[in-house]
Design a protein around this nucleic acid. Structure first.
Lengths: 204, 204
DNA sequence: CAAGATACCAAGCAAGCGCTTGGTTTGTAA
DNA sequence: TTACAAACCAAGCGCTTGCTTGGTATCTTG
C-alpha cells in the first residue's frame, strides 16, 4: 500500500480531513502559520485571512482556537502512524526496518506534513492539559512501532545502547532536522538517512 | 579552572549577571517562566510578580519584554561557551574530548542552566530578526568547539558520518533530553553520557 | 548631612486579543 | 419553488496585553 492510498483510506474513514475541504485547507494553513509565527503569535484573524474568510466565521468550523491546534496535531499523528506502520511492514530485515522508520520520519518531518510536525514538536505546551493527554495517547501507539524494532536490534547486539534511550535520542535528532536540513543543500533524503545510520554505526 | 571559578570570572567581567543581583534574579525567574509557560504566555505581570515588584518597574531594568528574553539567551550562551571550552581543554584524548562535550552539554541542558537552555531551544522564534542574528553569532563560537573535535574523530575514522551532520543530530538528541530525562529515574548523568557514546558507537 | 542617582509604586492608556451575536447569503434536496 | 440548513459577514464586547507616566522612597557618595 503506497502513501497516497493510505492517505485516501484515512480520509474515507474520517480520520484525517480532505485537504480539498474547507476544514482541510484551514488546517494546512494553520500548520504553516503556527510553525512560522508560533501558536500564540498567530491570531484568529491571521487564520481566517489565510483561507479568505472573516475571523468570526472560523468558529463555525472549530469551537476554539485551541481546537484548531489540537486538530492539526491529532491528524498529523494519525497519518504518520499509518505511514510508519506501512514502512515497517514493507521492510524485511530488522536493520532495514530501522532504516525505513528513519526514512519515514525524516519524510514526515521534512516533507508534506513537515509544518504540522514542527507544530507537534514546538507548540506542545500551548495545548491544555486535557488535550495534551489525548495527543499523548496517540503518540504512544506511534512510539511502540519504534521500540519494537529497536528492542530486537538491541537483543541482537546491533545497537549497543538501551532501546528506549536510543529512541529518545533519535526523536530529538530527527525532529531537529527541521531547523537545519535544506533539500537543496547537496544532500538528499536517502543520503541523510544513510548519515543517520552511519552515526548509529548500523550497517546494512 | 572549575565551573564555579568560571562563573565568577564571567560575573566579574559583566558577561553574565550575578544571580544575587536584582537583574540576575529576574533573569533566573524569567527563564523558568518562559520554559514553563512559553514566552508569549508569560506576561510582564507574571515576571514582575516572580521577583516581587510591580509590572511597570520591570522597565526600569529592561527596555522591553523581548530584551529580557534576549538577555536570558545571550547570558546562557556566554556561560556555556566558557564551560564547554574548559571541558574540552581538560580532556586528553579526542574520544575523551567528545565525551566531555557531551557531558557538559547534558549538564547545561539538565542542570542549573536547564531552564534557560530550554528557552534557547524552544523560544527562538519569539526573538525579532535583529536579536536572532546577535544570538546566532554567539552560537557559532560555541558550535566551533564541537566541530573541531568531531572533525578530528571523523578523520581518524572513529566516527563514520560527516562531522557537521553528527553535530546537528547531537544537538537535537541532547537538547531533546529536556523533555524526557529525569535524574530520579534510575540513570544518572554519567550513565546517560555513556549511553550517548554507545549510541554513537564510540568506545573509550 | 545634602544631593543626586537609582529603584520602585500606583494608575491607567492604547491596542490587540479570542470569541459572540444577529442577520444575510449560498447550497441542497424534495 | 419552497424550505431548511450550512456557511459566512459585519460589528463589536469584554478583557488582557506591553508599556508609559508622574511621583515617592531608598541607596550611594562627597
Amino acid at each position: 500500500m503506497n502513501q497516497d492510498t493510505i492517505l485516501k483510506t484515512l480520509i474515507a474513514d474520517n480520520v484525517v480531513s480532505d485537504p480539498a475541504s474547507a476544514r482541510g485547507r484551514l488546517l494546512k494553513e494553520a500548520a504553516k502559520l503556527f510553525r512560522d509565527k508560533g501558536y500564540e503569535r498567530t491570531t484568529v484573524r491571521d487564520l481566517a485571512a489565510a483561507v479568505g474568510i472573516q475571523s468570526g466565521s472560523l468558529f463555525h468550523h472549530f469551537r476554539s482556537k485551541e481546537d484548531i491546534l489540537k486538530a492539526v496535531m491529532v491528524e498529523t499523528i494519525q497519518l504518520n502512524t499509518a505511514l510508519m506502520r506501512a514502512a515497517v511492514e514493507a521492510a524485511d530485515s530488522h536493520e532495514d526496518k530501522l532504516r525505513a522508520l528513519i526514512r519515514a520520519e525524516l519524510e514526515s518531518v521534512l516533507g508534506q506534513t513537515g509544518e504540522a510536525m514542527a507544530v507537534l514538536v514546538f507548540e506542545w505546551r500551548s495545548l491544555s492539559d486535557g488535550a495534551q493527554a489525548e495527543v499523548l495517547a496517540l503518540r504512544d501507539i506511534y512510539e511502540q512501532l519504534w521500540l519494537d524494532v529497536l528492542a530486537t536490534l538491541a537483543e541482537a547486539g546491533t545497537i549497543k545502547a538501551d532501546a528506549f534511550v536510543v529512541r529518545r535520542l533519535l526523536t530529538g535528532a530527527l525532529s531537529w532536522t527541521i531547523t537545519w536540513y535544506r533539500p537543496d543543500g547537496g544532500m538528499d533524503l536517502a543520503e541523510l538517512t544513510d548519515q543517520v545510520m552511519l552515526t548509529l554505526a548500523v550497517s546494512h
